[in-house]
Design a protein around this nucleic acid. Structure first.
Length: 872
RNA sequence: GCUCGGGUGGCGGAAUGGUAGACGCGCUGGCUUCAGAAGCCAGUGUUCGCAAGAAUAUGGGAGUUCGACUCUCCCCCCGAGCACCA
């Protein structure tokens, strides 16, 4: 080439376009005027000062590509970014580096935003938000106040998860395998009074809503299991009179309203006749009133162990007889009441009816302590036998003695008077109806989901906007009748500012550092005016991130939580992309908060915040998750400096399917950098005018282009970026071959190539697009030192290329010939002829004569245009 | 223990009933160069063979089918989530 070569210089190009896009507000849609709003959102990042690593970049780039594709399809795409920098994650980082969280937040913010800019994502930089900004957390606090006003926020003394290292309580969702979600310390149980959000009131809606949303099945299943609905019945057992314990009424608990009965929850009311004993959890209220020394020793030993120890001690069940008896309400048998660890206070009523014949745990317990086992369900194949025994009593001991497991499968009820012959599980419902009619029990569902423990004994978070007045408490007055002494902070007093204090580190005494600051917590009661105290705990980080996408649409308006008109236009979020690790944390909380907003009338046209969610895979390094402690965190900066963000974006997306993640090894980046340079060279050197082309038959090229458009479009729509890039590469290879052969190339092929590549490599495609617009044909070195603002419309607003089916058909078809399913040859044939089977068969037959010769052709299978198989 | 993903060349992966290994990395040989880089050309699952060619091959085993990486059943291995939930 004689032309002056135009060198590819990614650093220069990328910095230039990033500046231009931000200055021109290229990716800041007019939220009011937009005609085709498309809210493209990536999961909220929390910034640490190590900053953004390639794992984050992997996720964000994948989300950005989708947004850019939607923009080129004519949508007004809104792609905001912000920082979830309030809360325990950020505070723990500040602790580690020994800097005040506020100071650290400033450093992290600057660094994180710088890195995010360098990745070239199409963020709307005019609408960033940070959760630690008082203009933001004012509304987080406002949400808390609304929760309190609607009775969804309440205080309760309960056994809660306590992380001894983070020195705070945690929600159930934040305990992973008995360990702290943040620091992996073993979580302890503590009896503390805390604030909760009543997410369980939404359990059924959270469950039902899953059927209506387009989320990965995996995530939906995880949420279903977490919500964990089990349907059954609550059944009351009366304690047999004659038990001489003095039963003092203990602290009122919903599960033990009366001390002379024991209520149980069971999913198998059909086995009630088989209940031969009962088991109470060691924490069950009446247990403490049993004076027996053996009982109290057992209970004390059990309580001393952590939950984790109890589980780790394995399947070996231990227990002690309480001395009490209860009456089985259906057959009036007197059955013993035991106390055992394997029954958990936290689930159901903390007491169970034990049916050893049909529950493996009860079975093991019964075997160990020699308790009776009564079979009340038989396998379906015995159904006929039961009909011949009107009493429904057959082989009571069959399958029990000498067998070492309970029968938990489906079957038919026996030994249960009028229930005999009912099929289970199909007819359990009839049993429950019967129990309801006779007043023995009532239909009930229980959930694994617990209320969301929202308070944290930490500094770096939004102070919970509540005030406690002991005077009012004494008088039994409060904002609600049932919350004496407690008042929410009035709206005009929000935000309750987090004060700058020196002793911000967690103390571990069950209170927040703010408890040491009277200047913060001393206040006046909003009702009676006497001395009162502010709540000093802060709220959970997950509350900050549970509503951020509402705020993005109105960051310019400080007078309301969001502009309702914009909400109607922009919400719900069209596409949400993030990690699967939040399936039962963030993604559940967000759905709950959104449903609450709907009930409060803040929104009306939706209650699922994310109708479409895509879970990307995890980018790992050397087969392990990137983490500071492993020392395998890869930062994108040096790669961007060396190869440019465009090459790195392409490399990351080419690694494998976006929902699978991948292992980051930098060997492949070189190859991708070469690819980017090849494209650059092709477009800068290879263009000629149309007239020169008239003599060359470029039908094949036309087909390749249309095919590329079709494949790339479909792949991006399904977020299959790796194959999209592969198809772009095939297209590039075809263009280079053509150019090598004829030395010319029609500009339109280069243009379509740039358009297809634009979402992946936004900077270099913009640069080439703009140069093409200026020069029309041949790109030469322009005066780079005096760059002007773009003269043409940004490539990122150009319409996405369309393909035409008619160019996709090949003139010649290759038909593979098989004999008995084995490939034996192939023929090429005019596409028009491929429809005529006899013709194809004849030609194919000749081709594979040596394999068919002298044999009977029993069958010929022909798939037009693809394959022909002779069966001999 | 239960639930959900996976298992394909030296590597990442493609192909969801019709030519297994697209696309890329790596590697081998060649061209170009003073040299390097970059670039270009050819090759690259395994076994036998100088070659033509043949056999064989998608964790293992069985099955359905004219035809199976793809569907069904059993087993092995890896990863993720939940876990004494009554």
């Amino acid at each position: 080439m004689k032309d002056k070569k135009v060198e590819y210089n990614p650093n220069k190009i990328e910095a230039h376009w990033q500046k231009v896009w931000e200055k021109e507000k290229t990716f800041s849609p007019d939220l009011k005027a937009a005609k085709k709003p498309f809210y493209n959102l990536m999961m909220f990042p929390y910034p640490s000062a190590e900053g953004l690593h390639v794992g984050n970049m992997y996720a964000f780039t994948g989300a950005d590509i989708y947004g850019r594709y939607k923009r080129m399809q004519g949508n007004d795409v809104f792609e905001p970014i912000g920082l979830d920098g309030f809360g325990i994650h950020s505070e723990n980082y500040a602790l580690r580096v020994g800097r005040h969280p506020r100071e650290q937040a400033e450093i992290s913010e600057k660094n994180f935003y710088r890195q995010l800019r360098a990745t070239g994502n199409a963020y709307d930089w005019t609408r960033t938000l940070e959760t630690y900004d008082p203009d933001y957390y004012r509304w987080t606090q406002w949400i808390f106040v609304q929760m309190f006003k609607k009775g969804l926020a309440y205080r309760k003394k309960a056994q809660v998860n306590w992380c001894p290292s983070c020195k705070t309580v945690l929600a159930d969702e934040q305990v992973i395998e008995g360990k702290c979600e943040r620091c992996s310390s073993i979580v302890e149980k503590k009896d503390l009074e805390q604030w909760f959000f009543a997410i369980t009131k939404y359990a059924d809606r959270l469950l039902l809503g899953l059927d209506k949303i387009d989320w990965p099945e995996k995530i939906k299943i995880a949420q279903r299991l977490w919500i964990g609905k089990s349907e059954g019945a609550r059944i009351e057992f009366v304690i047999a009179s004659g038990a001489k314990q003095s039963q003092k009424e203990t602290a009122s608990s919903p599960s033990a309203s009366r001390s002379d009965t024991i209520e149980v929850f069971t999913t198998r009311p059909d086995t009630l006749f088989g209940a031969t004993f009962m088991v109470l959890s060691p924490e069950y209220p009446i247990v403490s009133s049993i004076k027996d020394k053996k009982v109290q020793d057992y209970v004390r030993a059990a309580k001393k162990r952590t939950e984790r120890e109890r589980i780790e001690e394995g399947k070996e069940k231990t227990g002690v007889f309480s001395g009490l008896y209860a009456i089985n309400p259906v057959n009036h048998e007197k059955i013993p009441v035991w106390i055992a660890e394997y029954v958990l206070m936290a689930y159901g009523t903390g007491a169970i009816m034990a049916v050893p014949a049909h529950d493996q745990r009860d079975f093991e317990f019964a075997k160990k302590y020699g308790l009776p086992i009564k079979k009340v369900i038989v396998e379906p194949r015995f159904a006929g036998v039961i009909e011949r025994h009107p009493e429904g009593v057959i082989n009571v001991d069959e399958g029990v003695n000498g067998v070492n497991e309970a029968y938990e499968g489906e079957g038919v009820i026996i030994n249960s008077s009028e229930w005999n012959g009912l099929k289970v599980p199909e007819e359990i419902s009839k049993v429950v109806d019967w129990l309801q009619d006779t007043g023995i029990g009532k239909r009930e569902a229980h959930y694994h989901l617990r209320d969301w423990l929202i308070s944290r004994q930490r500094y770096w978070g939004p102070p919970i906007p509540m005030i406690f007045c002991s005077t009012c408490e004494k008088n039994g007055i409060g904002e609600h009748e049932d919350t004496p002494g407690w008042y929410s902070v009035t709206e005009d007093q929000l935000p309750v500012l987090l004060p700058d204090v020196e002793d911000w580190k967690p103390k571990g005494e069950g209170t927040s550092p703010l408890a040491n600051h009277p200047e913060f917590h001393e206040t006046k009661c909003p009702s009676c005016g006497s001395k009162a105290r502010r709540e000093t705990d802060v709220s959970d980080t997950f509350l900050d991130s549970a509503w951020y996408f509402f705020r993005y649409i109105s960051t310019d308006d400080k007078t309301c939580i969001w502009d309702p008109e914009r909400a109607r236009k922009w919400l719900p979020v069209n596409m949400y992309i993030g990690g699967a690790e939040h399936s039962v944390l963030h993604l559940l909380y967000v759905r709950f908060i959104t449903m609450a907003f709907k009930d409060w009338g803040l929104i009306s046209h939706f209650e699922e915040p994310f109708p479409r969610f895509f879970a990307h895979g995890l980018l790992i390094k050397e087969r392990a998750k990137m983490s500071k402690s492993r020392g395998n965190v890869v930062v994108p900066d040096e790669y961007i400096a060396k190869y440019g963000a465009d090459a790195l974006r392409l490399y990351l997306m080419f690694l494998g399917p976006f929902d699978h993640g991948g292992d980051f090894r930098d060997t492949g980046i070189e190859g991708m950098y070469r690819f980017v340079k090849r494209v650059w060279r092709l477009v800068t050197q290879g263009l000629s005018s149309k007239d020169q082309l008239s003599s060359i038959n470029n039908q094949e090229l036309e087909r390749v282009m249309n095919r590329a458009i079709k494949e790339v479009s479909g792949d991006i729509e399904n977020l299959r970026y790796n194959t999209a890039i592969a198809h772009i590469m095939e297209y590039v290879n075809a263009l280079i071959d053509f150019h090598t052969k004829y030395k010319i190339l029609d500009t339109k092929y280069c243009k379509s190539l740039l358009l297809l590549l634009a979402p992946f490599a936004p900077h270099m495609t913009e640069e080439l697009w703009q140069r093409l617009a200026v020069s029309g044909l041949r790109i030469e070195e322009t005066n780079q030192t005096k760059r002007q603002l773009p003269t043409a419309k940004s490539i990122h607003f150009e319409p996405w290329p369309q393909y035409d089916e008619k160019y996709l058909v090949e003139k010649e078809a290759t038909i593979v010939i098989q004999v008995n399913g084995k490939r034996r040859g192939e023929i090429r044939i005019q596409s028009s002829e491929s429809r005529i089977q006899s013709l194809v068969e004849g030609k194919a037959r000749k081709e594979v004569e040596k394999y068919v010769e002298g044999k009977d052709v029993k069958n010929v299978i022909y798939i037009p245009g693809k394959i022909i198989n002779f069966v001999v």
